[in-house]
Design a protein around this nucleic acid. Structure first.
Lengths: 343, 343
DNA sequence: ATTAGCACTCTCACGAGGTGAGTGCTAACT
DNA sequence: AGTTAGCACTCACCTCGTGAGAGTGCTAAT
């Protein structure tokens, strides 16, 4: 399935134009506007061929042509060239990340904001997910009578907390002691190892508090397995400016999707390839947004994937720009995260 | 400004009908449907009076009447009676909160979900805000070389964390020691007291680590002042079912508002009166949602306000139901929070 | 292989006419 | 004096027909 140069040129021009105007594009306009050097009739013939090959579609006879999903795919893979970010945009990113950010959640949020701002589409960011990581620290903090808060710090700097009921005869000293012992034992161990040897050792050392420790272990496991990936969504408002969302029904289905955090997480986490990932229409495994495209990437620390970012827009998306934005922000994010959690 | 019984009856019927149908209501339908016992002509006269008094409005001559903001206000204050929750609905709330919830953020989220589900409008919940509370615990957790994580636990069970750069010659033992000393000093002190006496004492005791401690104090203050109230929004999708949002422009402005977390927080926090709070149209201090109403309440522990919940819907809202829902959930929330953080 | 020309198709904007729900006013009724 | 029936009038909305405009496919000439 190769296209000759002229067909490529024409397909490129059609997609370019449709992305810009959202109107079906006709042969006459095209030939004139893009100085193709041939007449509209020739273009018409080529367009008919391209349609037959599945790269274009016609909303109805005697309207112009519109790119098909396959057309966009070809465009992204072979025709388009990424549109570098402006210096002013790079500057914006630099400034946003420069002001000392001290918490993961802040970084996530900033990233999301930049993502929408620069792409003008909807941004999605999932923050580090906890499973399969190491334990860094645990801490029991006495709260009111009979209660304590269990703090769990996981490897890439995720903090989780849980409330615990305490047996009545426990002193503050006990809590500290338990924290200390457990910390020593678990230091640097994988979550998966916990179950076996270590728990026994801890039990042995803390016989008196056996039931409490059991409860703690439950909670620790619970929190490390917790799917509560924090998710940032932004610029939903942005995407409504696109003419394809001039129809309330569409907006409704889109919002319906976006509110299902778990679904979004799954879609975002479903990116295996390294680098920037473009999914067009039905390539996103979600029926309801088959007229959207999604550009995403994973970010990582020490080569280990810890989260993903993505933008969501109509299939008629400014791929060239959006891809560059995602790429640039991922690189920045990798750097920042590595700096925060170099180990 | 008092209304005779018949006028009240008619106003009530109009609002009731308009809430149900979203159509301007006319005299004939009204007289028949609500068995007013008088003819449509009489009703017509009364309606003209009510309009003159500012309780009704006419979209155009020869359409029916529509309640004005003032009309809704009168309805809420004098005509309506709260619609108790069904047993099945109460059961739903009970079940949702019963499964052991261990984190504030979970409670917040559940509450939000219930709020939309029961009211079928958009739900907003702001979680406990940190300012003006006591410090419960701080902890330095060594992370990678040269870095530590500072955990700050505030009174109502809010946990914040920050990354810190460390001077190179610090040992793990030092960190623990510092944590212990600082904890002892600050135990139970108000944030506002920190600046003065306590810091001096800590300095005196930790002379060697003066610069580190200064940095810690900065971060602690920063985190306690942090406006990062966690906010839950849900059911945006829900509200789009209302016919008033059949217009994309409206949806856009609404979403524009909802994305400004800070603005939402301010609006939610702007509730002084105890109990359920009804704000109609322009009574919400935000120009862009002057055709919405908001029903909110604060929730508290030991009489101290720690957050708020609210639902947002069109001014043509099921006040009777929504008010009951907010009331019921606030009561539940108060109870749960008190149980979690009884002191 | 390319192009000019032409008939054909389909959408969209516009205006006219009809319909129906609702109003205000007046005069008659209790 | 309050209530009601009757009537003329208003206005949004639906439908239908028409014409303009943009675009296509096909054919014949270059």
């Amino acid at each position: 399935m190769t296209l000759d140069e002229r067909k490529k040129r024409i397909l490129w021009a059609i997609i370019q134009d449709y992305i810009a105007t959202a109107e079906p594009v006709g042969s006459r306009t095209l030939a004139r506007k893009y100085k193709l050097g041939v007449s509209s009739a020739t273009v018409r013939n080529e367009m008919a061929d391209l349609e037959e090959m599945g790269f274009l579609e016609q909303p109805h006879t005697s309207a112009g042509r519109v790119p098909s999903h396959r057309g966009y795919r070809f465009y992204v893979d072979h025709l388009m060239q990424p549109e570098k970010l402006q210096d002013s945009e790079k500057e914006l990113v630099r400034v946003s990340f420069e002001t000392k950010v001290k918490m993961i959640s802040e970084v996530i949020q900033r990233t999301g904001q930049l993502l929408t701002q620069l792409s003008s589409y909807t941004a999605m960011v999932v923050s580090p997910c906890a499973s399969r990581t190491r334990l860094r620290h645990i801490q029991l903090v006495p709260m009111s009578r009979g209660q304590a808060m269990l703090l769990v710090v996981l490897e890439p700097g995720i903090v989780q907390h849980r409330m615990m009921e305490l047996p009545p005869d426990l002193t503050v000293g006990d809590l500290e002691m338990i924290s200390r012992v457990v910390n020593e034992k678990i230091k640097g161990s994988q979550m998966s190892d916990l179950k076996l040897t270590i728990i026994r050792e801890i039990y042995a050392e803390l016989l008196r508090h056996k039931s409490l420790v059991a409860m703690m272990m439950d909670l620790i496991e619970d929190s490390s397995r917790s799917k509560e990936d924090r998710i940032y969504l932004g610029g939903i408002f942005n995407i409504l400016n696109e003419p394809e969302f001039n129809n309330v029904e569409r907006v409704k289905t889109l919002l319906g999707i976006l509110e299902q955090e778990e679904l979004i997480c799954n879609i975002l986490n479903d990116q295996d390839q390294p680098g920037v990932n473009v999914r067009i229409g039905s390539e996103i495994s979600c029926e309801d947004i088959k007229d959207c495209s999604m550009i995403g990437a994973n970010y990582e620390v020490d080569g280990q994937r810890i989260g993903s970012i993505a933008v969501l827009g109509p299939t008629r998306m400014q791929y060239a720009k959006a891809i560059s934005v995602v790429e640039y922000l991922t690189a920045n994010l990798n750097e920042i995260m590595s700096k925060m959690y170099r180990s």
